[in-house]
Computed example of a mutant assay.
Amino acid sequence: MTHSLYSAAEFRRRAAAQALTVHPDSWRENGDAKLNPSTIPHVEGMKLKDAAVLVAAIDEGDDARLIFTQRNATLRKHSGQVAFPGGAVDEADRDMEAAAAREAEEEIGLDRRLVEPVGRLPDYMALSGFRITPVLAVVQPGFSLTLNPDEVESVFEVPLSFLMNPANHETGSGVWLGTERHYYRMPYQGRDIWGITAGIVRVIYERLYA
């Protein structure tokens, strides 16, 4: 059975297939690490906290949509930025999938029973001090959301076809610890998807669709 390239069914198939090739050093090979190889030794010397984010594809039509949040401007870290739902892993979380689903439920009210994990990407080693596991998932449409105003300002969706088109992947740069660092940007309808979140999207493109 064939599926439309950007459907949730095809996303599920590709996510599961690439997950078989994830190994401990895979994070070096894609996205921001590939864009900034000089940061790899620094990150390897850091003590990182475990976190998980939910990359949720809505299963509707031939073009699935990914769910993003706009973080509250008052947060201590990554305030006001576009992000995937997620956060630090708790001791009670049985695995990264459970952590990502719990965080999404706490942040935006997405019922974790509706979340179908379909794979993981390599961990993202963030210079802000986190080892982030992106959990790829499929969510059926028709859900309702209740945002936690302390963490999330708004939620929006972006078509997978837009995100997986490399023509929409811009790059920018800034100075970090005296060194120029490059990052991806994917502006969409007035929203600035950049930094860690855009880096994760880029890894999805490189591992699933390139």
Rank of each mutant, 00 (worst) to 15 (best):
residue 171 T to E: 02
residue 98 A to C: 09
residue 65 R to S: 15
residue 189 Q to L: 13
residue 113 R to T: 11
residue 84 F to M: 09
residue 197 T to P: 03
residue 69 T to A: 08
residue 20 L to S: 14
residue 71 R to M: 03
residue 29 E to A: 14
residue 24 P to D: 03
residue 163 L to D: 04
residue 21 T to V: 01
residue 42 H to P: 01
residue 198 A to T: 00
residue 58 I to V: 14
residue 157 E to C: 04
residue 38 S to N: 08
residue 192 D to C: 07
residue 74 T to Y: 09
residue 140 Q to F: 09
residue 153 E to P: 11
residue 41 P to I: 05
residue 160 L to H: 05
residue 26 S to D: 12
residue 122 P to K: 02
residue 91 E to Y: 13
residue 200 I to G: 13
residue 85 P to C: 05
residue 121 L to N: 06
residue 39 T to I: 13
residue 65 R to Y: 03
residue 73 A to L: 03
residue 18 Q to F: 11
residue 143 F to E: 15
residue 29 E to K: 15
residue 85 P to E: 04
residue 131 R to E: 12
residue 24 P to A: 08
residue 203 V to Q: 12
residue 130 F to K: 09
residue 22 V to M: 06
residue 140 Q to G: 11
residue 6 Y to L: 10
residue 146 T to H: 13
residue 81 Q to I: 06
residue 19 A to Q: 05
residue 169 H to K: 04
residue 134 P to C: 11
residue 156 F to K: 07
residue 52 A to V: 11
residue 150 D to K: 12
residue 20 L to I: 09
residue 102 R to D: 04
residue 107 E to K: 15
residue 122 P to R: 00
residue 40 I to F: 05
residue 182 H to W: 03
residue 88 A to L: 13
residue 57 A to D: 02
residue 59 D to Y: 07
residue 38 S to Q: 14
residue 189 Q to Y: 05
residue 77 K to T: 11
residue 80 G to W: 02
residue 200 I to R: 08
residue 130 F to C: 10
residue 77 K to V: 14
residue 106 E to W: 09
residue 82 V to C: 03
residue 14 R to E: 14
residue 50 D to A: 13
residue 185 R to V: 03
residue 100 A to Y: 00
residue 158 V to D: 06
residue 133 T to Y: 04
residue 148 N to D: 15
residue 196 I to H: 13
residue 166 P to D: 03
residue 200 I to H: 08
residue 191 R to G: 05
residue 189 Q to E: 11
residue 168 N to K: 06
residue 151 E to Y: 13
residue 121 L to G: 12
residue 141 P to G: 00
residue 182 H to A: 03
residue 206 E to N: 10
residue 100 A to G: 00
residue 150 D to Y: 11
